[in-house]
């Protein structure tokens, strides 16, 4: 489709489907617009006031016609609703095996960290043919991660994780835009997404980039933070003053008020920042709040570390 200047490059597994739905719905839109325009023009010419034409038995009301032009649009929009919702579900449900990359947005740049710790700014390197899930959060205002070639977009919020996933299908370098207005340099919060062959991606991943040292993986960085911030003092103690974190991720946690909650990224983040938020059953509210003491990247690293703690595994 590259030769047609009306479509961005099709470079993800969802692009063709999106373009197809676009073509279908645009076809419907143009068909009806032209139909109406054609009818208006031909009627205006045919029944021009000076023309002698048969105007007898003009109809003023017709239940049949009204039903017809209620039912046809209704059927068409329901079809579009169904197709749109189907595509939307596909766009929102990421496969479990997806490669998870962290993205932190801030005025006015994108900060990216790969699973092995390699960082980049305003660039995102991804492998072709393997699903990639971005776990994104903003440090200040609302941003939006938009890659037209992949037909994906997701707002990046302060205070809450959002997710975006895609599978790149074609190598190349594509636009990355911030789509939600975020202040003065909004239009410069742009970058590129580079899709590489898996082997090339691996090679790229093991490079240092601009850093002088080999990258530290988020979970290793999280483990170091866990010591540095003093989390280990309670969460690793054997006296049970704080809940143990092994195998916590993905489990349901019983809360003090009798409810239970799934220990996902969102829960872990809020529990680190504002521990009183949802108190775990059987523990006193003694944990200090870490809001303002950790930045979003550090929180992501701590979560990566907690995720890595399997049940029964010993602390490294």
């Amino acid at each position: 489709m590259d030769s047609v200047p009306f479509f961005p490059p099709q470079a993800s597994s969802m692009a063709a489907q999106t373009d197809w739905l676009y073509a279908l719905s645009l076809g419907i839109a143009l068909f009806f617009s032209l139909l109406i325009a054609g009818l208006l023009l031909s009627l205006a010419v045919r029944y021009e006031y000076r023309r002698e034409v048969d105007r007898s038995n003009a109809v003023e009301e017709s239940l049949g016609l009204e039903l017809l032009w209620t039912a046809v649009p209704l059927a068409l929009v329901m079809l579009l609703f169904f197709l749109g919702a189907k595509l939307f579900f596909a766009l929102r449900r990421s496969p479990a095996e997806a490669l998870e990359i962290h993205v932190v947005g801030r005025q006015w740049m994108w900060k990216v960290q790969h699973p092995n710790g390699r960082r980049e700014i305003n660039e995102l390197h991804v492998p072709i043919g393997w699903p990639v899930r971005l776990r994104m959060i903003s440090q200040d205002v609302i941003h939006s991660f938009f890659v037209p070639a992949f037909r994906v977009k997701q707002d990046v919020l302060p205070g809450r994780y959002s997710e975006l996933w895609f599978t790149a299908t074609r190598g190349g370098s594509y636009h990355l835009f911030c789509a939600e207005y975020c202040g003065t340099s909004h239009a410069r919060m742009v970058g590129r997404v580079v899709a590489l062959d898996p082997a090339e991606y691996q090679r790229w991943l093991s490079g240092f980039g601009a850093a002088q040292q080999p990258p530290v993986s988020p979970q290793a960085a999280g483990a170091a933070l866990f010591e540095k911030m003093g989390c280990a003092v309670c969460h690793r103690a054997s006296d049970g003053r704080a809940p143990t974190l092994e195998g916590l991720y993905g489990r349901r946690v019983l809360l003090a008020d009798g409810r239970s909650v799934l220990a996902d990224e969102e829960y872990l983040r809020k529990s680190i920042l504002t521990p009183g938020w949802k108190l775990v059953a059987g523990f006193a509210p003694i944990m200090p709040a870490y809001a303002g003491r950790l930045d979003e990247e550090e929180i992501l690293q701590l979560i990566a570390y907690i995720r890595s703690l399997q049940r029964g595994a010993r602390h490294g």
């Binding site: 676009y22 719905s25 839109a29 579009l80 609703f81 197709l83 749109g84 595509l87």
Partner: peptide
């Protein structure tokens, strides 16, 4: 078209 969920994403 914009109300069409999957399309609006783009």
């Amino acid at each position: 078209m914009l109300a069409t969920l999957g399309l609006d994403v783009h």
